[in-house]
Design a binder for these strands. Structure first.
Length: 484
RNA sequence: GCCUCCAUGGUCAAGCGGUUAAGACAUCGCCCUCUCACGGCGGUAACAAGGGUUCGAUUCCCUUUGGGGGUACCA
């Protein structure tokens, strides 16, 4: 048993961003592949951002994906509470300790003064930086303000010279100039900590050894290290993950429906496919295989395989992978999954099981199903030119003839089964001495009105039934005649 | 602006001083075939640029260019 411990520490935003899911996944996999512990902690220190039901989204998504944590809000292993808003006193205690240690100070500057300062600097074209107004208050002054109940924050003291370095497991050595480190706020005036403080205190107190997070924290990590050092705590191993964008380097956005796990899931992407695709976005096992179950990933994942350059979320490949997972489903499972989509567009009595069989190898995303099967319900308007098929050697005229000739053949079939329809049609084709396509292409077109369909003429005829088949062929004959 | 990270085909990527520079998606062509899809076979397509280091750079270093991130009482 290794003593590696990772954590997923989302702030409850109300949805699971795909980038966050990947962070959770990698954290989980790093722990599991090393026989370590995976923990969930909720970072809800920004009270203005409270979102109803947001925690449930986190719990639900992790559970659905199989990213089971060994420790968390509902699994207290002695390091709780695991929800930061319930840890206020802890942060206050450590913030004050940091002041005593000489690494932080009270700041009584009002929001107004800070805003003024910001404007002033901006007007001069200078970047904002806290001016250290409260840094040199005497102990007496501080006590007086404290006694008077003045609101305050606690800021971290930063070195002004030199550089800070640390090793990142994926980026290697990171060097930051200390002069760029701001004297950031550790404890807000409402008594809540900022992320910058809470994550350090909690990670240490909770025994987190490997910090896995997005690379937006890469430049602020030295500030966290200074905190670890000030307390005399051991610094964790850092694993910063490159960002995921969409084509053109744009951000995945919730608004456009391409950013959240649940959007994809609701559209008919399978959770295993999502996990698999996301795992490979920024990480590579090295070989040629690309389809991996979560269990397999738990075995083979390694930090070494994490890429350090940003990755584009490729919708086309994602769809392909989802299609692979759909093809791997047991037929009955696929059928069950497809049923709700049939209900949206099919009211006729049809052999849905057969439709599922025809569909499974064609569908990439479940939500595309209606587009594939809607013609079973009705034939939409289509153009006569569809009867012209170069490879099948059909023309509008040949199609009209073929359809007219095939009507009696279809009428003569009493037992409306696929094999029967097939043999009757083939026999007819043989008799005529024409190529299959001469008859079958127009028939398929007449029955579907589509360029492509799941199944060919025979399958479609079987599924919609004899009566409907004849009705559609007759309609088609009239339609073609009218167009000539 | 300042700081910082990144850079192999359209996309994901392997590579870690000497390779015909893998593989996958997409794309194109062929085969299979009652359409499409699946499946099979094949094609097009990449080391951002310029300097070094070296017998030899995609690989190491520097510069440029391009892109990302940070610069909040958000995380």
């Amino acid at each position: 048993m290794s003593n590696i411990k990772t954590r997923f520490a989302p702030s409850p935003t109300g949805y699971m961003h795909i980038g966050n899911l990947r962070t959770a996944l990698y954290s989980y996999l790093i722990a599991k592949s090393n026989g370590g512990t995976f923990m969930l902690r909720i970072e809800d220190t920004d009270q203005n951002r409270f979102v109803e039901g947001a925690m449930d989204v986190i719990y639900r998504t992790l559970e659905l994906c199989g990213l089971n944590y060994d420790e968390g809000p509902d699994k207290d292993m002695g390091n709780g509470p695991y929800i930061q808003s319930q840890r206020r006193d802890i942060y206050i205690k450590y913030a004050k300790k940091l002041v005593e240690l000489g690494h932080a100070y009270y700041c009584f500057c009002s929001k107004e003064r800070l805003d003024g300062l910001r404007e002033e600097l901006e007007a001069k074209g200078l970047p904002y930086e806290y001016d250290g107004h409260c840094k040199n208050l005497s102990p007496e002054e501080i006590q007086k303000k404290l006694d008077a109940g003045e609101p305050y924050v606690i800021r971290q003291i930063m070195p002004k010279e030199g550089v800070s370095e640390y090793d990142d497991a994926v980026y290697g050595k990171i060097t930051i100039e200390n002069s760029t480190l701001e004297e950031q706020i550790l404890l807000k005036s409402d008594g809540m900590p900022t992320y910058n403080f809470a994550n350090v205190v909690d990670d240490h107190l909770m025994g987190v050894t490997h910090v896995v997070r997005g690379n937006e924290y890469i430049t602020s990590t030295p500030k966290y290290n200074l905190l670890y050092d000030a307390f005399g705590w051991e610094r964790p191993c850092y694993i910063h993950l490159p960002l995921i964008t969409k084509e053109g380097g744009k951000k995945l956005s919730k608004r456009e429906g391409d950013a959240s796990f649940e959007d994809f899931y609701n559209k008919g992407y399978l959770k295993d496919a999502i996990i698999n695709y996301v795992a490979l976005l920024g990480w590579s096992p090295g070989g040629e295989r690309e389809i991996y179950s979560l269990k397999e990933l738990e075995e083979i994942f390694s930090i070494k395989g994490i890429n350090n350059s940003p990755a584009v979320f490729d919708m086309a490949k994602f769809r392909w992978m989802n299609g692979e997972y759909i093809k791997m489903m047991a037929p009955e499972d696929f059928h069950k999954a497809a049923l709700p989509y049939y209900e949206k567009c099919l009211t006729r009595k049809l052999d849905l099981k057969r439709i599922s069989e025809l569909l499974q190898s064609r569908v990439e995303v479940l939500c595309d199903i209606p587009d594939y099967v809607d013609f079973f319900e009705n034939v939409c308007d289509y153009d006569v030119s569809m009867y012209v098929h170069k490879k099948m050697k059909t023309t509008v005229e040949s199609s009209l003839e073929a359809l007219q000739n095939v009507i009696p053949v279809l009428e003569s079939i009493d037992d409306w089964q696929e094999e029967k329809i097939h043999s009757a049609l083939m026999e007819h084709i043989a008799q005529k001495g024409v190529k299959n396509g001469i008859v079958l292409w127009p028939l398929r077109t007449a029955l579907s009105g589509k360029m492509s369909t799941p199944g060919g003429a025979v399958e479609i005829a079987y599924i919609i039934g004899k009566e409907e088949t004849l009705a559609r062929v007759n309609n088609a004959v009239n339609f073609i005649k009218a167009s000539l």
